[in-house]
């Protein structure tokens, strides 16, 4: 389907065009995927505490399917950050279970989540996503530093393979940098994000946990990351999109889950819901006016 631009967005669009000097795709092309939905990641009744030890996830359940983007809509601080960490093994699960294609991941380490094929675009790229004082090369293999293609044995890192791989990411994902040997600290925020996205997508992931993937990017970068997310979805990845930007969630998602106070209060079809309904759910968690529950 091809979405439409609403009248009140026209000015914004024109402004954006002027800024980037070309036609901006604010609407995105989503190809329909044939066949029955195939669940990949199963999350059952997951509970987890936040950094202060308070219960932040109070029993979250959903399944993430192949060839879909499941958007998580919600007001910041309703458990999104903890959800992303739980699904990448960075935060322990207190109760409930997580499994990927029947492979039990509950209680496993971040290493196991990576090896199972879960990619992660973290919300805080400076803190989690990159080692700021590592070069592009070093950051390009973060998470896969022990992969056979980069480390044929535990006594040997294949420097050339790492350089080639990094150069490929830089090329394919349009990271602007003088060389792959500079520290990522010296890159602009947008290029840092492109590097993270490039690294995570180049792993050939089955599941992508994308937390705030476009935050802080310029319009060109934002558009680019969104296109890439859709491309990954089309290639069969299951994408969980956690974003505070409701427009982004509505634009990209095949299904929208609303999170409120640590619970998924509704899962909606973007074609039959609207901003108002989602907004009400996000603010009150109330199902009163919610119709068309989707499974």
């Amino acid at each position: 389907m091809i979405g439409t631009v609403r009248a009140d967005e026209t000015n914004e669009r024109e402004l954006a065009e002027m800024m980037v000097g070309r036609d901006v795709v604010f609407t995105v092309r989503r190809t329909e995927v044939k066949g029955a939905p195939e669940p990949v990641l199963k999350v059952v009744d997951v509970q987890a505490v936040d950094d202060r030890g308070l219960l932040a996830l109070k029993g979250v359940s959903f399944e993430l399917r192949k060839n879909e983007i499941l958007g998580i809509a919600g007001v910041q601080g309703n458990g999104q950050a903890e959800l992303a960490e739980v699904l990448t093994g960075l935060r322990p699960v207190k109760k409930g279970s997580i499994s990927l294609d029947g492979l039990e991941l509950t209680g496993k380490t971040a290493r196991d989540f990576i090896d199972a094929g879960i990619a992660h675009i973290p919300a805080d790229r400076h803190l989690r996503g990159l080692v700021m004082d590592f070069t592009l090369r070093e950051n390009a293999i973060l998470g896969r530093q022990r992969a056979h293609e980069f480390a044929p044995s535990c006594f040997w890192q294949d420097q050339r393979a790492i350089t080639r791989y990094t150069e490929r990411i830089v090329r394919e994902f349009g990271v602007k940098t003088p060389s792959v040997h500079v520290l990522v600290r010296n890159l602009s925020g947008g290029n840092q994000q492109r590097l993270i996205v490039g690294r995570e997508f180049s792993k050939g992931p089955r599941v992508i946990i994308a937390a705030q993937p476009t935050r802080g990017l310029d319009i060109g970068g934002m558009e680019y990351v969104r296109e890439q997310l859709l491309a990954m979805r089309d290639h069969g990845a299951a994408v969980l999109l956690i974003s505070m930007d409701l427009d982004e969630v509505m634009m990209l998602s095949d299904r929208i889950a609303v999170i409120y106070e640590g619970r998924i209060v509704a899962i909606k079809d973007p074609e039959t819901t609207d901003r108002r309904e989602l907004g009400e759910l996000m603010l009150s968690g109330s199902r009163a006016q919610a119709g068309g529950e989707m499974r």
């Binding site: 990448t88 093994g89 960075l90 380490t109 971040a110 290493r111 989540f113 990576i114 090896d115 992660h120 973290p122 805080d124 803190l127 989690r128 996503g129 990159l130 080692v131 700021m132 004082d133 590592f134 070093e138 293999i141 973060l142 998470g143 530093q145 022990r146 980069f150 480390a151 535990c154 006594f155 040997w156 890192q157 420097q159």
Partner: peptide, 25 residues
């Protein structure tokens, strides 16, 4: 500077949260 274990050690030193993200204990 030339082994994966050393790489992991240095990433822990420079940024523990990022190292954790990279699956390093």
């Amino acid at each position: 500077f030339r082994t994966p274990a050393g790489y992991e050690l240095r990433s822990v030193g420079l940024s523990p949260p990022a190292a954790e993200y990279g699956g390093i204990r």
